[in-house]
Amino acid sequence: MSDLPVRFRRLWDEIAPVGRDAGSGGYLRYALTEPELRLREWFRDQADRRGMPVTGDGNGNLFAWWGDPVAGDAVLTGSHFDSVPHGGAYDGPLGIVSAFLAVDELRAAGAAPVRPVVVAAFVEEEGARFGVPCLGSRLLTGQIAVDRAAGLRDAAGVSFAEALGERPAGGDAGLLGRFAAFVELHVEQGRALVDAGAPVAVASMIWPHGRWRFDFDGEGNHAGTTRMADRRDPMLTYAFTVLAANKEARLRDAHATIGRVAVAPNATNAIPSSVTGWLDARAAEPETLRGLVEAVQAKAAERARRDGTALTCTEESTTPPVAFDAKLADRLAGLLDAPVLPTGAGHDAGVLAAHLPTAMLFVRNPSGVSHSPAESATDADCAAGVTALVRVLEELACR
């Protein structure tokens, strides 16, 4: 019997405690904060142990090279370290740990890549600190302006450029041109593989999705002395909008979530002066997504008029539908005898897919839960994911 599950667990345990919150059991690994910086040092150490030089792109993304960094035609793999607040352990880091183990497996088997294999750690994939998901890959591919990215600020007012320690470099066509393909291994963020009884799947597409900020402004006042008829309470407008988003998404078989809110002055005995909520919306088709967001905006605006409040809606990020390279997906599905699944979750692979042939592998998540401490995967399934990645890298880089 292979000892790969044991070796996976040994390597996984090196990073498992980093950034874990003792209260929730989830992780606080915001991009470029102390826990994520520790993981980036771990990345460099793992690369150094394997004789893989590490390069950066000036945007916070790291690349560990097995082979000549300037040779070109490289096969890129990896994922990200950062987490959503109190998120699960596997979302992101699984792809990096698996990539290093895949390199170990290939070397142990005497494989001789004819193309470089590169392990990547992308920065700020979740967008939990600076608000824009897949920020590192968007910068690398030129999909976000450098000035905008540099000026993004976290809740404490620290800019991305300040956290990075330099102005981001932006798009790098020369670096992108050295990659022939990207394969990202990721824990499944759902339970399709549980239902299918399979440990690994290949992704077919990513739903279009985006984030919109709803700012509701009213009149702050005393909770005990202000008559109900005299109130201009933005919390009422906000609450109605949450319910409207839920209803409109269900009508369209889409997804809508308002999971983040900011209130001022945030006092128990004060009517809020302002409320801000962030809408995450996703759908199988762009037209459905557009119709969903427009319907929520219209209902929120109508309710604001009735409540005597003001509404401003700002699109913070949108990602069009991503159909992964069909030939590559079919090739990998046949190679692995694995099911092919769509996903509603965004990934760096979705950004890079517009620039080079890209595929994703999913590893079974028995809980079906993600962005939560309940996210999980067995060591045996993670080992199966590593084995699948080995076969993919052997197919793409060694032949």
Rank of each mutant, 00 (worst) to 15 (best):
M1G: 13
M1Y: 06
S2R: 14
D3N: 15
R9N: 03
R10K: 13
A16V: 11
S24T: 15
L39Y: 08
W42S: 02
F43Q: 07
R44Y: 02
A47E: 00
M52R: 11
G56H: 04
D57Q: 06
N59R: 08
F63D: 00
P69Y: 11
D73A: 12
Y90W: 14
Y90R: 01
P93V: 12
L94D: 02
S98Q: 06
F100I: 10
F100T: 12
A102P: 14
A102C: 12
A102Y: 09
A108S: 14
A112F: 00
R115N: 02
V119N: 11
A121T: 02
A121W: 01
F122N: 05
E125K: 08
A128R: 01
T141A: 15
G142M: 07
D154Q: 07
D154V: 10
A161F: 13
A161D: 11
E166M: 12
G171S: 14
G177H: 10
G177W: 13
F182I: 01
L185Y: 01
A192C: 03
P199T: 12
P199S: 11
I206D: 00
W212C: 06
D217Q: 08
G218I: 04
A223N: 10
A223C: 10
T225N: 08
R227T: 11
R231A: 04
P234H: 09
M235I: 11
V242F: 04
A245T: 07
A249Q: 06
A256Y: 04
I258V: 14
T268H: 09
S273N: 06
S274P: 00
L279S: 04
A284S: 14
P286Y: 11
E287M: 06
E287N: 13
V296Q: 04
A298C: 11
A300M: 05
A300P: 04
A301C: 12
A301K: 14
E302H: 13
E302F: 06
A304Q: 00
R305D: 15
R306G: 05
G308H: 08
G308A: 12
A310E: 15
C313W: 11
E315A: 14
T319R: 05
A333L: 10
A338R: 00
T343H: 03
G350A: 04
L352S: 03
H355F: 13
H355C: 03
L356W: 10
P357N: 07
S367A: 14
H371F: 04
P373F: 06
E375S: 03
E375M: 08
S376K: 05
A377N: 06
A380R: 15
D381Y: 07
D381S: 10
A384H: 12
G385W: 13
L389I: 10
L396T: 03
L396F: 12
A397P: 07
C398E: 02
R399G: 15
